[in-house]
Amino acid sequence: MAEPKSGGEGNARFASTNWRIITTAQDADLPEARQALAHLCTAYWYPLYAYLRRKGHSADSAQDFTQGFFASLLEHDFLKDISAEKGKFRTFLLASLQHYVANQRVHDQALKRGGGRVHSSIDMPDAESRYAVEPSHTLTAERFFERRWALTLLERVLERLGNEMKAAGKGALFDHLGQALLGGGEAAPYAWIGKELAMTEGAVKVAAHRLRARYRDLIREEVVQTLDDPNAVEEEILALFAALRR
């Protein structure tokens, strides 16, 4: 499971979270801050898009707003407005977007893009197809956003976990052990998996245990990137859990 490598990397990431770099930067033009912001925007643009769609914007307009919003975020002196929403990137992002959309409506001006700044590459054509599977019924747009945020985070973590396992030559094991991440004795037929992969049941159990531990680490690593205060990780995980409850 490549523990040594990822462990070291994980600690490094913990030391300075992306959102912390951004919130503590004095100078908006600090390249690291800008880079960190771009990194976060690329990762979490979709929940914003889904939010706008849920608010009733057409696909085109939601795409324009999202793209434009990030462009303006990266172009302008965004740090000015941060102090009020400091804390969680998630909260900051949603508040800023709401502000941005309101302004856009008033001014109705063409969006300026580009200008040699750092750009986040956003996979727009994919957006509509993802949105099409959203279960939206009764959620408000804000809850929808939170739910989508939590899902995006989970997707990113699972992807990283899967990549790590693949890199360690344990892709098949990961595919079989997905359910084991959820915990639950019944749901993980270790003996059967062992037979499938020519491993002993004990070895599978150990692998499942390690996988769960690594998964918990990764979740925390991912969450902490979006927080100002690394100590608020558990709280944020609980908030994500609340967002996902049905």
């Binding site: 939590a150 899902l151 899967g162 915990g183 918990r216």
Partner: peptide, 18 residues
């Protein structure tokens, strides 16, 4: 839910991380 990542129940996933 339809949007469950890797067909894993998101609620249980996050609960496992609690």
């Amino acid at each position: 839910p339809k949007d469950a990542p890797r067909s894993l129940c998101p609620e249980c996933l996050i609960q496992a991380a609690l």
